[in-house]
Structures are given as C-alpha cells and as structure tokens.
Design a protein around this nucleic acid. Structure first.
Length: 784
DNA sequence: ATAGGGTTAG
C-alpha cells in the first residue's frame, strides 16, 4: 500500500485499503496519512475528499489524531483549497510546523502575502520556530509585498537559526532582496553562499533584470557559466530578456546557442523570450521563424509577435496575427489591446483606435490602467483631446504613467494651464511626479510660448532635487530655439554638456534650430565642425537639419553641398533643400528639385507643397503656383492646409490680384489667420487699396497671435503698409507676453525685416532699435 | 525557491 502511494497509484491504494477493511483487518491512522500523502503527490482532490469522509466516519480517534489532522491541512493546502484547509487548520489543537508551513505556503501561492506573514507571526507567537520549508515562503511574501524591513528581520532570523547554509533559504533571500529593489544585498547573499545552484544564480539574474540593471544581469550570466553551473530555462529566458532590453544582439544570439547546446527544452516561455529578443533587436524574420516552429503557443507568444509587428509599423501584419490568434481560439487580453492601441496611436488611425476602444469596453479591459493609458494616448495623438480627457476621467485607478499620458497630451497642444492643473491634481491624489511629468510640464509652457514659465519650472525641478535627463535638456534646447531664444538654447546646450550629458541626435537638431533662429552661420558652422571632429555619423535627420541650417542662415551653396553628399536621401531632406531654394528666391531650382524627387519615386507630402508654393509666391510665378495647387489636390489627394492657402493668397496679392485672393479666402474651409490677413494688408498700399487697408488693419489687430512667429508676421505686415502705430502696438504686446523682439528670424526673415524697416520710417524710435539689432545680426553672419 | 508580453516625455 505504501509503495502504491509513492508510485502515484493512489486509486489502487484506496481500493486495497477498502479490501482490508472488508476483511476487518486493523487499520491505523498512519495508513490514512499515507493515503492522503499519495493524494498530495497526485493533487487528487476528489479521492482525498473521499478519504477525508472515511476518516470522519471512523470517529474522533482518527479525526482528532495530530498526524492525520496535519496531513489533511497539507492535503487541502496543496490542492489549492484554502477554505477547507483554513477551516480544518483553525480547529487543530496542536498546530505544528508542518501544518503552519502548508497554510503559509498556500497563502503564498495564492498571492495572499499579508495573510502568509500574519500566519508566520502567529506561528512564532505560539513558540514554534520556522524551518527550511517555511522560510522560503515567508521570504517570497516579503518580496511580493516589497516589505524590505520585514525581509531583513527574517534574514536576521535565518542567520540566528543557522539556516543560511540551506540553498532553498539562501536562494529565497536573493530573490527577496531582488524583488525589494535591493540588488546589492541580493548580490551579497549570493556571494556568501558556499555552493550556488542554478536557482540562486537565476534569482540574481532576474533581480537585476527586474530592476533595470540589464548589463549586470548579463555579467552574472557569464559568471554563472564560468562556475560551470548548467543554465535552465529560467536562466536563458531572463538572460534573453536582458539582451532584448539592451538590444544586445550578440549576447542574445549566444543565449539562444547555449540553450540549443545545453539541450534545453523549448517551452512556451523560452520560445516567447526568443521572439521578444529577436523582435526587439529588429530581426523580425528570426522571431517569425521561432514562432512558426513552436508547438504550443499561448497569449503571450502571440502578443509578442503582434507587438513586434506593431513596433515596426506593420499594423496590417499585426492585425492579421490577431485574426489568426482568434482562429486558434485564443482570446485577446489587455496586453494585446494595449499593444494595438499604441500602434493605432503611432499611425494616427482614429478609425481602428475607436474600434479598439469599443472592444475594450465590451470586454472589460478598461479596468486595466495600462490599457486606459494606451487609449488616452491614441485619442490624444489623433487630435481628440476631449475624448482623451473623458477616458482619463472615467478611469478609477490612475497611475503615474496614466497621469503622464494626459499631461503629455496637454503639453503637446501647449495647453499649459490644463497641464499645470493636472500636475497639481496628481500630487493631491498622492502620485508624485517623476522626471517625465516635469518634462511634459516644461514642454507645455514652451509650446504655448511661455518661455519664462518654462524656465521657472526647470529651476523648480532642480531645487526639488529632480535630476534633469537628456529629454529635459533637449526639450529646453529645441523649445527655446523655437520660441526665438536661440542664444539661450545654445547656452543650454553647453550647460547640458557641463552636466555630463552627451549630445545626441535630438539635441544636435535642436541646437541647429537655434542657429537658424539666431541666423548665426558662424555657430552653425562651428556645430558642423563639432560633428565632424567627433566623427558623428551624418545621419539623415542631422543632415536634413544641416541643410536647413545652411539654407536659412544664408549659405545656400553649403546647403547644396551637404545635400549632394547624402547617398540615400529621404523626403525630408528634399523638403529642406526646396525650402532653401525658395528662401533664396530660386523658384526655378526649387521646382526642378520638386520634379526630381517625384522622378526618384518619392511621394511629395504637404510640406513639399508648402515649400514649393512658397517658392512660387516669392518669385511671383502665378501659373506654376496654381498648377502645383491643383496637382496637390487632385493627384496627391492632399487636403490643402491653411499654410497652403496662405501661400496662394500671398502669391495672388503680391501679384496684385486681390480679387482672386479674396475669392480663394471665401472658399477655403479655414478662418483667415495672421499670415493671410498680413499678406493681404502688405499688398494694399502698393496696389492703392486704402479702404481695404483700413479694414484689414482692424481685422488683423483683433487676431490673437499664438506664437512669436505670428507676431512678427503681423508687425511686418503693418510695417509694409507703413502703419507704424500698429507696429508699435504689436511690439508692445510682444513685450507684455515676454516674447522676443526679433524672434525666429532666419536669414531671409532678417533680410525682409531689414528691407521693410529701411523702406519705412527710419525716424521712428522702434524702427531705429530694430534696425540696429538687425544690422548687428547681419554683421555677425558676414552678410555681403 | 527562480522565468516570458503591453502604456508616458524631446
């Protein structure tokens, strides 16, 4: 009977005992104990219950036997039946270490860590000392709750009891410290272990990965190899996770090879880790091949491939995988939807985004904050801020990332007041902001032109001890540059380097933008030199910014040289060069390049058309401009933006065809903005339309410019019309809003402003001041 | 005793 129990043939054992009973043989309590143990091995809940019933029938001598009572508690606990286990346990008079271990272990497995620790306390209060079986569970509970203080007390107890030498206990200590974020203590425990098995090493690797210390995880993996400990699935899985997070191609590939060499079984878990690794390092074909060779796949496996496709913008493939997943009778979970929503956000696909949102509502996935964040972000990126806000408000739980998502949405739009409210609100609701929250808040002010407020927030952030990161610096640099504070942007770039932060692509682009705003060819050249000296690869985004910088700072030849140097051009660099030609009044070259990019197989976008139309406007090429406009609408299906209309209005009014310009304005689906009214006004005096000038002048003053560029356009328009009082008013308004007097001027803008003011009333004090500043600027850039 | 996937900022 004993051997039957141990061999896992519990039913035969039960039958044998029944036969013995029929023959009236004496059966002691220990027999039932063994039967129950057999049920524990096989997790045979049903059989065990029948045995329990027989025990009860045999009366108190059996049912109240300490050994049997303990076995019953253990049996129900191991079969994950907390109700039965707990109620029996409460009735046990003599609670021993074994039954305590079973109950604590059950609570642990069920994730009831607080209950597990309460049990542990009660056990100690009853004078029982924990053993090697209880301690790992207690430590797991501490780790799960991240209760480091209790964890340390238990560590002390481990040492006092002399259990430190047990690999189970020591491994659990490593795991506990890792889960509590104390990786150094985990490492100390690992180093102090006389012998380390795979679990101990694995716990350390996992600890590092879970705390974002991926390099350390990789180092520990190689240490483990040097010690000759065979890796397990857990080892490889976690190692691949670290490699994926770092994009460490060689390490991850080696991990795959080691798994094959060591003959590690390809489980769903391991396969999923491989798919994750390969898709994160951009080898989606490898991920696909692992996927196709996996025999069993679960939701995680499918989600990973879907996420792989989503990350490279292959939304159709991702959706196709979803379809296939459904055919396999697997249900989408919150991870599937969060991944999809993020892809819809990136591709600005409102239609699919809404469908996804509906799916979440129907399937109760909106209870997951991560899903809510992805929905809010999708609506925000699709320019539906109202929907984003409603979804945000309706979420019961709000974590830091959800707050940050909403904050970023307002920041993007420059709704700095709303962003600030949210920033206070989150703190009232006990969610402390992190560096990302601060960055968004600063961006919100910069995007609304409130430069002083942005700088103030940066100082507040520093004084509260929040460390600015690379994004903070680049937000400031490009924000200052865009707001016309080019000089401060460059100073910030220097401060960033002094703070020990190395410039990256985004910061270089930002500081080149600052050169454009200062019209400083000198600093721009210096930066170009810096890039060459540090042998920074001229990536297409940087080359595009360089072309833009040279063109806008007045060196069109150098712009063309950089442009010609780049082998595999993309549309943005063509756009920058076209804009460069347009700025220099070289409409013929601009249009030639436009035809060239079409021949190269590129599809011109709305920016291409804005620049090409701008070129036509400058050169007063009416028929070419109209042709482009028609081409854009009918052949390229581009909805003309207000900028496109602006170029056309400017072109028509410069050519004196104000009637046609007005006709166009009356048909466009936008309210005329500063640029449009400005270009009409600028043309009035030259074409002798005094009444119209009066009317436009009043209309223009009613508009509230939302950025410094529009203020400049407004002041230029008034200047061109010779209306100096209005110029003064606009400049005063700018002063009140803390905006720069000469904001965002490129070389061409400087030239334009200069011409305007030279042609105007030089005796006007405002004019004099501006003239001097401009002249200095022009000298600085060695204007010929 | 240890393991795989998703959301936010320039």
């Amino acid at each position: 009977m004993s051997s039957l129990c141990k061999q896992g043939q519990i039913q035969q054992a039960v039958d044998l005992v029944a036969e013995m009973e029929l023959k009236n043989l004496r059966i002691g309590p220990e027999v039932y104990g063994e039967l129950l143990q057999g049920c524990v091995y096989e997790r045979a809940l049903h059989t065990g219950r029948q045995i329990h019933a027989q025990i009860v029938k045999k009366g108190a001598i059996f049912a109240m036997n300490e050994y049997i009572e303990t076995k019953l508690v253990i049996f129900y606990a191991k079969c994950d039946n907390p109700e039965a286990s707990n109620s029996l346990f409460r009735r046990v008079r003599l609670k021993n270490v074994f039954s305590w271990a079973a109950v604590i272990g059950l609570n642990c497995r069920k994730g009831f860590y607080q209950e597990a620790l309460l049990g542990f306390r009660e056990m100690k209060e009853n004078g029982l000392l924990p053993d090697n079986f209880v301690l790992p569970n207690v430590l797991k509970a501490c780790g799960g709750l991240e209760w480091i203080r209790i964890g340390k007390v238990v560590h002390g107890l481990v040492l006092k009891l002399g259990c430190g030498g047990c690999v189970f206990v020591a491994s659990s200590l490593v795991d506990m410290y890792g889960k509590c974020g104390e990786v150094e203590d985990a490492r100390k425990v690992l180093d102090g272990m006389p012998q380390r098995n795979a679990v101990a090493w694995n716990s350390m690797i996992v600890g590092y990965v879970q705390n974002g210390l991926n390099e350390e995880a990789i180092d520990v993996f190689y240490e483990m190899r040097e010690e000759g400990v065979e890796p397990t699935q857990v080892t490889i899985s976690s190692f691949l996770s670290a490699s994926a997070n770092l994009g460490a191609l060689q390490d991850g590939k080696q991990g795959h090879a080691i798994a094959v060499i060591c003959g590690i079984e390809m489980t769903t878990n391991l396969g999923s880790s491989l798919i994750n690794f390969y898709s994160k390092v951009g080898l989606i074909e490898y991920a696909e091949s692992v996927f196709s060779r996996m025999l069993e796949k679960d939701v995680v496996t499918w989600n990973l491939l879907i996420s792989g496709y989503a990350q490279i913008g292959e939304v159709d493939k991702a959706l196709n995988m979803c379809h296939l997943m459904r055919l396999e009778n697997l249900r989408f979970d919150s991870v599937t939807l969060a991944t999809l929503m993020s892809a819809f956000a990136d591709t600005r696909n409102l239609k699919l985004g809404k469908e996804g949102h509906c799916y979440c509502i129907r399937n109760n996935l909106e209870s997951d904050v991560v899903v809510v964040s992805s929905i809010v972000d999708m609506y925000a990126k699709c320019e539906k801020i109202g929907c984003a806000r409603r979804v945000f408000n309706s979420s019961i739980t709000k974590d830091l990332i959800l707050w940050n998502t909403m904050l970023a949405a307002f920041a993007e739009l420059g709704h700095s007041g709303e962003a600030l409210n949210l920033f206070y609100q989150m703190q009232l609701e006990s969610v402390p902001p992190n560096v990302i929250s601060w960055n968004s808040l600063i961006l919100g002010f910069l995007n609304s032109g409130q430069v002083n407020e942005a700088k103030d927030m940066f100082l507040q952030m520093l004084s509260l001890g929040v460390q600015p990161n690379l994004v903070t610096w680049t937000t400031l640099i490009s924000g200052l540059a865009r707001s016309g504070f080019g000089y401060e942007a460059i100073l910030t770039f220097q401060r960033m380097q002094e703070a020990g932060v190395k410039p990256n692509v985004v910061s270089i682009i930002g500081v080149l933008l600052a050169c454009i705003n200062l019209a400083s060819l000198q600093i721009g050249r210096a930066l170009h030199g810096y890039l060459i000296r540090h042998s920074l690869y001229l990536s297409i985004p940087i080359a595009t910014s360089l072309v833009d910088m040279y063109a806008k700072c007045g060196n069109r030849d150098q712009a063309k040289r950089v442009f010609d140097m780049i082998p595999d051009k993309e549309l943005p660099i063509y756009n920058a060069m076209i804009s460069g030609f347009a700025l220099h009044g070289q409409a013929v070259e601009a249009l030639a390049l436009y035809r060239c990019l079409k021949e190269e197989g590129f599809k011109p976008d709305n920016i291409t058309f804005t620049n090409a139309l701008y070129a036509c406007s400058h050169a007063m090429m009416v028929s070419e401009g109209l042709e482009l406009f028609v081409d854009m609408v009918s052949n390229h299906n581009i909805n003309p933006s207000i900028e496109h209309y602006g170029c056309m209005v400017s072109l028509l009014s410069r050519c004196g065809d104000l009637d046609e310009a007005f006709r166009l304005i009356s048909t466009m689906p936008y309210k005329p903005d500063v640029q449009i009214l400005g270009s009409l006004l600028a043309a009035c005096r030259e074409h002798n339309k005094i009444e119209l000038e009066e009317y436009l002048s009043n209309q223009l003053l009613k508009l509230q410019p939302d950025n410094s560029g529009n203020y400049v356009a407004m002041s230029n328009a008034y200047a061109a019309a010779g209306r100096w009082d209005e110029v003064k008013k606009v400049r005063q308004l700018m002063k009140e809003r803390g905006l720069r007097k000469i904001p965002g001027c490129s070389w061409i803008q400087v030239g334009e402003e200069l011409n305007v003011f030279v042609a105007g009333d030089k005796s006007h004090p405002e004019t004099e001041e501006i003239y001097t500043t401009l002249a200095l600027l022009l000298m600085e850039m060695s204007f010929r």
